[in-house]
Write a protein that binds this DNA or RNA. Structure first.
Lengths: 120, 120
DNA sequence: CCCGTGTTCAACCAATCGGTTGACAACAGG
DNA sequence: CCTGTTGTCAACCGATTGGTTGAACACGGG
C-alpha cells in the first residue's frame, strides 16, 4: 500500500472493525483490552488494528502503567474531508456548467437552423 | 476486504492512482485509454482500477462504440462525508464536554473512577 | 467482410493484509 | 522477588491486491 498520509487514512477506514473502533473512541477513550472485548478476535489482532489507526494519525496512545489508552485524533478527518469536498464540488460544478453548455449549444443549433431556413 | 459499501469506497480511495483518476474525472469524462496514458502501467491495470471504482459506486461507465467512457458519480462522496462528520463532530463534542467534566472533578474525589465494576 | 482500435478476461506473481499462536516486555501489588 | 495483568513482537497462514502478459471480445471504417 502507498505510504502517503491520505492513503493510510483511507486504508485504515476501509476495515469495518477499525471503523467501529473509531466510532467507539469517539465516545470515550479505551484500552486495547476494552476495545478487543466485544469482537471475536484476539487482543493481538486488535493491537494490530490500533497500530494501523495510529500510523494513519487517527488515534494516539498514552501510557498508564501497563495500559496504553487510545484516544481519537479527529484533526486527521479534515484531511479526508478536504480531499473529498474538493472533487465533489469540482464534479458538481462541472455538471452545472455542462447544463449551461448544453443549453448554449441548443441555442446555437436553433440559430443555425433558423439561418439555414432563412437562406434556403 | 469487507464488501459493504463504505468499506469499498474507502478502500477504493486508499490507492493514489485511483484518487488521481477520480481527480481527473472530476474535470472531465474520459475513456480507459485516455486515463491510462499518463501512468506508467498497462491499460489492463487501469481497467482493473476502474473496476474497483465502479464497484464502489464512484464511477459509472457508458458505451460509445468500442469506447467505455468513465464518469464520476459524486453522490457516493456523501456516504463518506456523513460517516466522517458524524464521528468527528462526536469526538469534538466530547472534547468540549471533557473540559467541563475536568473542572467539575477538581472539586470532587477521583479515587473511585470508572473501573469495570461500576461501569454503566 | 476483414482489420484496427479499445477494452476486458484469464492466469500468474510478489507483496500485503487480517488473522492466528507463542513468547516476551512492562508494570502494580502482594 | 515472584505473580498476574496488559500489551506488543515474531513467525506463520490463507486470502486479497496491484501488477504483469497473452488472448479474446466488441465495435466502426475502409
Amino acid at each position: 500500500m502507498a505510504d502517503d498520509r491520505l492513503s493510510r487514512v483511507f486504508a485504515a477506514l476501509a476495515d469495518p472493525t477499525r471503523r467501529d473502533i473509531v466510532a467507539r473512541l469517539s465516545i470515550t477513550d479505551a484500552t486495547v483490552g476494552e476495545l478487543a472485548e466485544p469482537y471475536d478476535v484476539s487482543v493481538q489482532a486488535v493491537s494490530k488494528h490500533l497500530r494501523v489507526l495510529t500510523d494513519a494519525g487517527l488515534v494516539s496512545r498514552s501510557r498508564d502503567a501497563q495500559r496504553r489508552p487510545c484516544r481519537l485524533e479527529p484533526e486527521v478527518f479534515d484531511l479526508m474531508t478536504k480531499w473529498i469536498e474538493r472533487y465533489r464540488v469540482q464534479a458538481e460544478e462541472r455538471f452545472r456548467r455542462l447544463d449551461a453548455v448544453l443549453a448554449e449549444m441548443d441555442d446555437e443549433q436553433r440559430a443555425t437552423d433558423d439561418r439555414r431556413g432563412a437562406a434556403s
